[in-house]
Amino acid sequence: MEQGVRYHITHETVAELAVRKPLLVRPETPVRQVAAQMREAQLGCAIVVDATERPLGKFTQRQLLKLLVESGGKLDQPVSAVMYQNADTVSMDTPVADLVRMMGQRQIRYLTVVDQEGKVVGLTGQKGVMEYLADHFPRHVKVQRMKPLISMEEREGA
């Protein structure tokens, strides 16, 4: 019998997710430059790493917002001064269900995927989980009309 979503999520791992190429920055990089790189990569999160590409923390668009509102935008300080100290790491063999629970409990959007040596290999999170659902269950999620916006009135006479 074909298995349901619940089964897949419990038995499949991060390796099955849409893991994205991470944006890695060094701790001394000015926030302004990190923001520019995030914009270019179209990512809401940068991972701050040491010289061996092990994660020290992360900087998200939420922190950028906070920095702008609360301090009027001191964007020339090093990212290490304002980053989250926790990069929230998972490995390729973490079950998708654990990832979903982690994000809910910690109220986080982004997770850092590390290899066995602890080096950063990818970025995933809420968006990765949604893309996973869409990819695995196309029958349910992909077969939707894109814009159900046309009202009956507009349709008449067409």
Partner: peptide
């Protein structure tokens, strides 16, 4: 922005988020 009507299923919103890329 792309919207969903309240008589749609959750799959519709997930579709817009995951496939079309609206957060």
């Amino acid at each position: 922005p792309a919207v969903v009507y309240d008589n749609s299923a959750p799959a519709m919103a997930l579709n817009l988020m995951a496939v079309a890329g609206f957060r």
